[in-house]
């Protein structure tokens, strides 16, 4: 069954007009990103629409996949190791955020309990605490539970994932609450009357109905972990793509087309993840409500 689209009596002309307007608004984005990708295939950055600054080459991609940071000399890095680190952090944050967010979102949407309003309020105001203010305190806690050195790499991954996921909890909770709110109560009642526990209702009945919400939270969680700089830089022993790119985009010495290539490489997994999440968002129908 197709997703929720306005398919019924849409006029072709108005659709084309809307598309045209959005495309016009999107022009800076399209230009900027096209130039970035083009720069990755050029010996110098392509920055304006002047074709004379485009010198086609595949060298940048070859250099990057060899883990090199410059045409000559420079250090060799294990680029696939860095990609793997980034994936571990991003998937970890995504999973934890989704789990916690859907539990909490359910509770504040469907249950009445003492302090419910305060918790809701707290959860949104927490977002007023910027990472740059929190990080020193979070470092304190990191030190308190530091394991023996042989486990520190493992610990640093674990810690970054949990600490970074914690920052996304308010987002996830509020988002999920919005989705739970949309499900009619009758469904839950009938399940509870049948003798199911709240956890069972949550997991078996409600979650499958709000896959778009779950997908959105997963996506935001993934992006949060994928692009985090300050927590990853401070706590993770290893590097991720984001910190690697940041440290090597020093404009004076850096060979910027290589940064453009690294940026494109960085975008690929997020694009794949988005397309996967997007399919979830679109293919789920809410017709299940009737059942």
């Amino acid at each position: 069954m197709p997703g929720m689209r306005d398919v019924e009596v849409r006029s072709r002309a108005s659709e084309a007009l809307i598309l045209l307007v959005i495309l016009a608004v999107s022009l800076p984005l399209i230009t900027g990103y096209s130039l970035l990708i083009l720069s990755g295939f050029s010996k110098s950055m392509v920055t304006n629409l002047d074709p004379s600054s485009f010198y086609p080459t595949l060298m940048n991609w070859i250099l990057l996949l060899q883990g090199r940071t410059a045409q000559f000399a420079g250090i060799r890095v294990n680029i696939w190791g860095i990609v793997a680190n980034t994936l571990v952090v991003a998937l970890g944050v995504s999973a934890l955020v989704t789990l916690v967010g859907s539990l909490t979102g359910y509770a504040v949407s469907r249950m009445n309990f003492a302090g419910r309003k305060h918790i809701m309020m707290l959860l949104i105001l927490l977002h007023a605490f910027p990472g740059s203010v929190l990080v020193v305190g979070v470092a304190f806690i990191y030190r308190m539970f530091m394991p023996p050195l042989e486990y520190i790499r493992f610990y640093s991954f674990f810690y970054v994932i949990v600490a970074r996921a914690a920052i996304e909890i308010p987002m996830a909770t509020w988002l999920m609450k919005g989705f739970f709110d949309m499900i009619p109560w009758e469904i839950e009642w009938s399940a509870i009357v049948d003798g199911a526990s709240r956890f069972r209702v949550w997991w078996n009945v409600l979650l499958p109905m709000i896959k778009p919400g779950v997908a959105a939270v997963m996506l935001f969680g993934f992006l949060a972990g994928w692009m985090d700089l300050i927590y990853v830089r401070t706590f993770l022993v290893d590097r991720t793509l984001a910190t690697f790119i940041e440290a090597n985009a020093e404009a004076e010495y850096a060979y910027l087309p290589l940064v453009a290539v690294a940026g494109t490489l960085y975008l690929l997994p997020t694009i794949i993840f988005f397309i996967a999440a997007q399919r979830l968002i679109f293919t789920i129908s809410v017709s299940g409500i009737k059942g």
Binding site: T69, E246, A247, N248, A249, E250, Y253
Partner: peptide, 8 residues
């Protein structure tokens, strides 16, 4: 570990 930006 060697980065372009020594400040970082």
């Amino acid at each position: 570990r060697y980065e372009s930006d020594p400040k970082i």
